[in-house]
């Protein structure tokens, strides 16, 4: 192994964070973004905001936007979110050189 996960690499991490800590911070930031979209699509658009979305229709759609999110859209968004997370983490793993 070229780098141990806890080794400080000054050229990449100018702060006092070790590479491992910087990696974990980047991961947590990614998770926060992913889960914010997750909560907005499922708990928000599909449940909490539904009363305001019963008269809103996307062009071409015959079902109200809130109902669409609840019975179709949110599920599709979940799938996209997991693949997006896996893809982003591939890049972060490589940037911090912690891939297996």
């Amino acid at each position: 192994m070229a780098n141990s996960p806890l080794e400080i690499k000054p050229e990449e991490a100018p702060t006092t964070l070790s590479n491992g800590q910087a990696y974990w911070k980047a991961n947590k930031r990614t998770i926060f973004t992913i889960l914010s979209i997750w909560a907005f699509a499922s708990l928000g658009m599909s449940i909490l905001f539904v009363p305001f979305l019963s008269d809103v229709f996307l062009p071409g759609f015959q079902i109200p936007l809130g109902f669409w999110f609840a019975h179709q859209g949110a599920i599709v968004i979940f799938v996209v979110l997991i693949f997006a997370y896996a893809w982003i983490m591939d890049r972060i793993d490589r940037r911090h050189d912690v891939q297996e």
């Binding site: 990614t30 998770i31 997750w38 499922s42 949110a74 599920i75 979940f78 997991i82 997370y85 896996a86």
Partner: peptide, 11 residues
């Protein structure tokens, strides 16, 4: 029964 997989994959 679907949304839990996002929690599982990230957390």
């Amino acid at each position: 029964w679907t949304g839990g997989y996002v929690l599982l994959a990230t957390l």
